[in-house]
Amino acid sequence: MKSQRFQYKRLGLLLALSTGLSCVSLGLPLQRALANGWILYQEGNLQPLVGTHTFAGTAGQTVAIALRTDGFSGAVVLIAPNGDEVARNEYYGRTSGPMIVTTLPTSGAYKILAQSPYGQAGTYTVNVRIATAYDLAFSRGVQLNQEGDYAGAIAAFNEAIRADPQSPEAYVELGNLLYDDARRLKPEEARSIVSAYERAAAAYERQGNQEMAQMLRDLIVVVQAEVSPIPSGAFPGGGVR
């Protein structure tokens, strides 16, 4: 019962992590967006189903298109200049909002659809940037995880961490994968998971996101409890909690 209870608690924390990152603050100044070298940064308000944005793309460019919503589930769709759908995404790992990482097939005006697939309304941001080494590795990790190649996904998230040690999302995804892959946590496995979560928490603190940092530290407690179970009889009346 204890293991099952901790599993439920961990699931709740993971859901909170996912929700927390999908509802990030939308107050990023335009100056910072330009300093980051983003091709596009715009804000919108979905009322209630779709917002449309365009940008000029060049054949062969590999871009990262990110949608961040304020309190609702979203999806992002990329439409080529000829009207064909290039890619769409509604789920991008457990710690990120919808994101597309793809190579543009042709030059011209591309259309981005910011969608609210469940009929919800609210504010959002969408940005387009040239994909970084981190974006490419993280995207590959998400794809491999969805395909069931957990060893490949772990390697990809480690590659993302090497590319950008300051970004917390890859640490979280790596910790989640290691946890999911462990049937029974051994001390050395737990150390790897805890290390990933601790680094993610520290990265969130540097970003000023204390809530996410605390959620991860709560998750660390759950992982450590799985490794060091409370013995039967530790509480009045016997049994475990």
Score class of each variant (00 low, 15 high):
Ile154Gly: 01
Asp70Leu: 12
Leu178Trp: 02
Tyr124Arg: 05
Pro168Asn: 03
Ile112His: 00
Leu174Cys: 05
Ala201Trp: 01
Gly60Ser: 08
Ala131Ser: 02
Pro165Met: 12
Arg5His: 11
Leu30Pro: 00
Gln207Arg: 05
Glu188Trp: 10
Ala87Gln: 03
Ala153Phe: 03
Ser18Val: 10
Leu78Thr: 01
Val126Glu: 00
Arg217Ser: 07
Leu185Tyr: 04
Gln214His: 08
Ser167Thr: 07
Val50Phe: 15
Ala121Val: 13
Gly57Ala: 07
Asn145Tyr: 09
Leu185Pro: 01
Ala160Gln: 00
Gln115Glu: 06
Asn209Pro: 12
Gln31Glu: 08
Ala182Lys: 06
Ala213Trp: 01
Asp218Lys: 07
Thr125Met: 05
Gln120Asp: 11
Leu219Ser: 01
Leu17Glu: 01
Gln210Thr: 15
Asn36Leu: 15
Ile112Val: 08
Ile130Phe: 14
Ser228Met: 11
Ser192Ala: 15
Pro229Val: 12
Arg183Lys: 11
Arg199Phe: 14
Val101Lys: 01
Tyr197Val: 11
Gly175Met: 11
Val172Thr: 03
Tyr134Arg: 04
Gln224Leu: 13
Leu15Lys: 02
Tyr118Asn: 05
Gln210His: 11
Ala33Arg: 02
Ala35Lys: 00
Asp70Gly: 05
Leu178Ser: 00
Met212Phe: 08
Asn82Tyr: 05
Val194Phe: 06
Gly12Asn: 08
Leu15Asn: 05
Thr123Pro: 09
Phe138Asp: 00
Arg32Asp: 03
Leu185Met: 08
Asn127Gly: 13
Pro29Asp: 00
Ala153Ile: 05
Arg191Gln: 09
